[in-house]
Amino acid sequence: MLSFTTAFVAAAVAAGVVASPAASPAALSRRNTPNGQGTNNGFFYQFWDDGSSGVTTYTNGAAGEYSVNWQNVGDFTAGKGWSNAQPRTINFSGSVSASGNFYLAVYTWSTQGENYILEDYGSYNPCSAGTSKGTLHSDGSDYEVCLVNRGNNYLQNWSVRKNKRSSGTVTTANHYNYYQAQGMTHNPLSAAAYQIVSTEGFGSSGSATITVSEASGSNTGSTGGSGSSTTTTASSAPTTGTCAQIYGQCGGSGWNGPTCCASGTCKVNNAWYSQCL
């Protein structure tokens, strides 16, 4: 079991002043070198702290489990997942308890920007200061999709789940394909350094215990890089039952849902996933 703690005490914290969880997104700095990362029990883990204030303790558990405790932090991210970003179907379970703002998300990072599929959060919705890119329905809920510019051309893609949860399944391909269809910033996968289920605290205190795994039959093939994917057109003729809506799944290995599109055309992204575009 690996555990480490970072402690930063700033004058503002000593005076009892903590960064506001509703601060403008532009106030967050670009992420850079992590405090720690590596592999643990077959999973990649990553921990980053901005070093501005507070105490954060991260602990790796068995298999895909991790826990993190934080007090009066400026900003940190921590979690487990994979060292390469792919259109995985990801299972996660656990709990988060926080006073102030936090994010629980499938998270990828690159020098070009970040992608958040946000499953649970505290007092601040990041899309409130972003550019709306519509609504995506996936995994039993609508997601508010937006683009946030952190400054210096460092951009974030966000999917903010309307029905918050701390356990469930995320079909990441639905989100990555939607971002590309909307022309949102960089390719979500080609430059990503890692893909984790991240707990993040921002101007807050709290604790979380999360377990991560990849769903059986999930697609981990290469996609999204330059010259690394192909797209072909599949039949969109109506079948029995309700057809999928635009950007919804309409086919793939093991798929038992609709195989027709109410609008658009069912396009094959790979053997596991086809989408109405």
Results as ranks from 00 to 15, higher is better:
163 N>P: 01
94 G>D: 03
235 S>K: 10
208 A>D: 03
59 T>I: 08
157 N>D: 15
199 T>E: 07
145 V>L: 14
131 T>P: 04
188 P>V: 00
143 Y>V: 04
154 Y>E: 05
236 S>T: 05
164 K>R: 15
110 S>F: 04
62 A>Q: 09
228 S>K: 10
199 T>V: 15
71 Q>Y: 00
195 Q>D: 09
99 S>P: 01
230 T>L: 10
192 A>M: 08
49 D>H: 12
109 W>F: 14
43 F>Y: 15
193 A>F: 09
10 A>E: 13
36 G>S: 14
92 F>A: 10
230 T>Q: 14
123 S>W: 02
95 S>G: 13
220 T>C: 13
153 N>W: 10
162 K>T: 14
132 S>P: 06
5 T>F: 07
218 S>T: 13
71 Q>T: 01
241 G>A: 08
241 G>M: 11
14 A>N: 11
209 T>V: 11
86 Q>K: 15
214 E>S: 08
17 V>S: 10
122 G>T: 02
8 F>Y: 14
105 A>L: 05
46 Q>W: 13
134 G>F: 08
142 D>L: 05
186 H>T: 11
39 T>F: 14
167 S>H: 06
154 Y>K: 11
169 T>V: 15
189 L>C: 09
165 R>N: 15
112 Q>F: 10
259 T>V: 10
28 L>A: 08
187 N>E: 13
183 G>F: 07
91 N>P: 03
27 A>L: 14
152 N>Y: 06
134 G>V: 06
141 S>G: 06
176 Y>R: 06
84 N>K: 12
160 V>Q: 00
153 N>P: 05
115 N>P: 00
79 G>A: 07
15 A>H: 09
258 P>F: 01
204 S>A: 09
200 E>L: 04
35 N>T: 12
177 N>L: 13
9 V>I: 15
144 E>L: 11
7 A>T: 15
96 V>N: 00
48 W>K: 07
102 F>A: 01
145 V>D: 02
203 G>F: 01
69 N>F: 05
158 W>R: 02
188 P>G: 04
105 A>W: 03
